[in-house]
Amino acid sequence: MNKLGLESIISNICGKNRDMKSHLFSADMKLADVIHADYSLLLLLHRFGINLGFGDKTVQECCEANHVSCTLFLMICNVYSNEQYLPTEDEIEGIGANVDQLIAYLKNSHSYYLDNRMLAIQEQLKEISEGCEQQHQQILYLFFNEYKNEVIRHFEYEEITVFPYISNMMKGVRPGDYDIGVFRGNHSNIDDKLNDLKNIIMKYLPGDTLSDMRIRVLFGIFALEEDLSKHSLIEDKILVPLVMKLEQRYAKQ
């Protein structure tokens, strides 16, 4: 890859409109303008069931047309686009009636990570490994598979235990042997093995091993890491406080 080609990739990945990201998105903005401000938000549309082709509709109009809570959608967009933003306690309480949509969003995110992002990385690693010695192939497969299995276990716990608990509580059924504090106390960081994988690709594979592909897969891994970081932030700073409020409400009944 020549220098110009690499600079083009970096510009495309990193060149978001920082000026527009300096303030929060609002319901009366055109959704197209929101995406122009931060194109990574395209990833959120599918997770909320919002399709492209929305013309000049505002965020509010697009959310209403797709039966999506505009407040929740904007909250997630602002978390993704503004590193300084965290919703207030009152803002979190304001989405209490849309817990089901938040859970659906998180489940759709899980599917995207496993069926799209990680599958693409796995295919790229397979291509890279074909030009490596067997020892390096085994190391790549080992670290990637360990990370993938850890992510799967992480998501399965949420979908089998945490999300049904929340959904049942919304229906008035609350198991007495569980609360969201258990999830909060065990919400593990799953980034360590991903860091190991990045370092192997950057530092320890032979320098002449498919440099172009290695750069692409590293961009993919960094993007996955950033996306998962926001995902965890949403669970820790929005989902957990929201469920704690619900638990307190049920405790008073």
Rank of each mutant, 00 (worst) to 15 (best):
S129P: 04
C63V: 09
G96R: 05
L102W: 06
L125F: 02
A97D: 13
L102H: 02
D100S: 04
L42G: 02
H46G: 04
N108K: 14
N108I: 12
G53D: 09
L45K: 01
S69F: 03
G55D: 08
S81Q: 08
I95V: 04
Y113C: 05
I128N: 00
L74M: 12
Y112K: 08
K57I: 09
L114W: 07
V79E: 05
K107F: 09
H110G: 10
E127H: 00
V59K: 02
P87E: 05
L72C: 09
I92D: 01
L125V: 01
D100N: 03
L44E: 05
L102P: 04
L74K: 11
Y85G: 09
P87V: 12
N82H: 12
H46F: 09
E123K: 01
D115S: 09
N82V: 10
S109T: 14
N116E: 13
E83A: 07
Y80W: 14
F48C: 06
Y80M: 15
G55V: 07
G94E: 12
R117D: 08
N98Q: 10
D90H: 14
T88E: 09
V68I: 13
Q101M: 14
N66E: 11
Q122L: 08
G53E: 08
K107G: 01
A97Y: 06
G49V: 11
C63Q: 09
D100F: 04
M118W: 03
R47E: 11
N98F: 13
G96C: 01
C70G: 03
E127G: 01
E89R: 10
L41P: 02
G96H: 02
V79I: 15
Q122Y: 05
T58S: 06
C63K: 09
Q101Y: 12
T71W: 06
A120E: 08
Q124V: 06
G49Y: 10
L119T: 08
A65S: 06
L52V: 12
I50N: 04
Q84Y: 01
I92P: 02
R47F: 06
L42P: 00
C77M: 14
Y105S: 04
Q122A: 03
K126H: 02
Q122T: 07
S111V: 13
K57F: 10
C63W: 07
N82C: 14
I95F: 01
Q60D: 15
E93M: 11
T88R: 08
L125T: 03
C62Q: 07
H46M: 13
Q60G: 09
N82I: 12
G96V: 10
F73V: 11
S111M: 13
E91W: 00
